[in-house]
């Protein structure tokens, strides 16, 4: 199915201009705001600007806290990723606060849910509230967004725990233990399939969005004893197997921002306590503009997609 992003982008719009073409002149501060510069103009080619944050844990008492920062997004970013734990208890009331916070974001918003968003057993209703507000909520599916005439793909799952290579739980023994590890394995499999869909769709940039961590690198600062509850190497294996340009996650409040999978994919922990800001900003070069992250054969073989942002394979994999 096709769904419009929060603000329709114009294919072919060069990243060197803001949507109104006015550039960074909106900033009343002396000198240009460095984050308002919308693209590199130094001959290195087009970049996609990704804003990302997780673990904002909003509730009615937080209404309006992030809105001012989000309102400036169109000048700074091409899309906003929300890496789960958007609410405190996973209630519809809290989800409405999240929807209100991003209502004026002015860029496509793509989210996965986190464990907190499941706590009240209302995750379907939470997803509906966010979807009604124009947020693309991914769980085993992917979305393709047009940025400056290029396809930027985001594949998302919440993910789950189990631990990392050499110190991980196995699908063995009691039914409860097998179910625990199977949950992670199936989630990783859905992520790999969704990333594969992005390659098939000819995306110039592919981003893996999860709540749980794919690598232990970004958990540095968390007690070692709880690493198995913070993520799983199965997610990293899926990311490396299917290929991605960036992996973004949350969940680990005491962790660090930077990490990398064994296969060389950059991982960023954007839990708000980690990044210490309303969101983090990353600028990725677009494949074909100097950096090839998708094989040319895959890109040219891909079918055309509607420019408004297309959700891939959602209904099939959600069950």
């Amino acid at each position: 199915m096709t769904r419009p992003p929060t603000t329709p982008d114009t294919p072919g719009r060069p990243l060197t201009t803001t949507p109104d073409g006015a550039g960074p002149a909106h900033d009343p501060a002396p000198g240009p705001d460095p984050t308002s510069e919308t693209a590199r103009s130094d001959g290195h080619g087009t970049v996609v600007r990704v804003a990302a944050v997780g673990d904002i844990h909003l509730g009615p008492d937080c209404a309006g806290v992030l809105r001012p920062a989000f309102a400036g997004l169109p000048d700074r970013a091409d899309l906003l990723l929300l890496a789960g734990d958007l609410t405190r208890h996973g209630t519809v009331e809290e989800a409405r606060v999240v929807a209100e916070e991003v209502a004026d974001a002015g860029v496509p918003v793509v989210a996965v849910l986190g464990n907190h968003d499941y706590h009240s057993g209302e995750e379907a209703a939470v997803t509906q509230v966010l979807t009604d507000a124009g947020i693309t909520v991914l769980e085993g599916d992917a979305v393709v967004l047009p940025v400056a005439g290029h396809k930027v793909g985001v594949a998302g799952v919440k993910g789950f725990c189990g631990g990392f290579v050499g110190r991980s739980a196995g699908e063995f023994g009691e039914p409860e233990m097998k179910a625990f590890v199977r949950t992670t394995r199936l989630s990783a499999e859905r992520l790999a399939l969704a990333l594969g869909d992005l390659s098939a769709a000819g995306c110039a940039v592919r981003i893996a969005l999860t709540h749980f961590a794919p690598v232990p690198d970004t958990l540095a600062g968390e007690p070692l004893e709880i690493h198995p509850f913070l993520g799983s190497y199965l997610l990293a294996e899926a990311i490396d197997g299917a290929g991605a340009d960036l992996a973004v996650h949350g969940h680990a409040h005491l962790g660090t921002e930077h990490g990398m999978t064994a296969g060389g994919v950059r991982v960023r922990n954007v839990a708000q306590p980690v990044i210490g800001r309303a969101f983090a900003l990353y600028r990725l070069p677009v494949a074909g503009d100097g950096t090839a992250s998708v094989p040319e054969a895959v890109r040219t073989a891909a079918p055309a997609h509607a420019p408004g942002g297309e959700l891939i394979s959602g209904a099939v994999r959600r069950s």
């Binding site: 705001d33 460095p34 984050t35 970049v47 600007r49 904002i56 806290v65 992030l66 001012p68 920062a69 400036g72 700074r76 340009d245 960036l246 950059r266 708000q272 306590p273 990044i275 210490g276 800001r277 309303a278 969101f279 983090a280 900003l281 990353y282 600028r283 990725l284 070069p285």
Partner: peptide, 12 residues
């Protein structure tokens, strides 16, 4: 938690 917009980006 700080709710300010970031004052820098990271090039990847």
């Amino acid at each position: 938690a700080c709710a300010d917009a970031p004052d820098r980006w990271e090039e990847l």
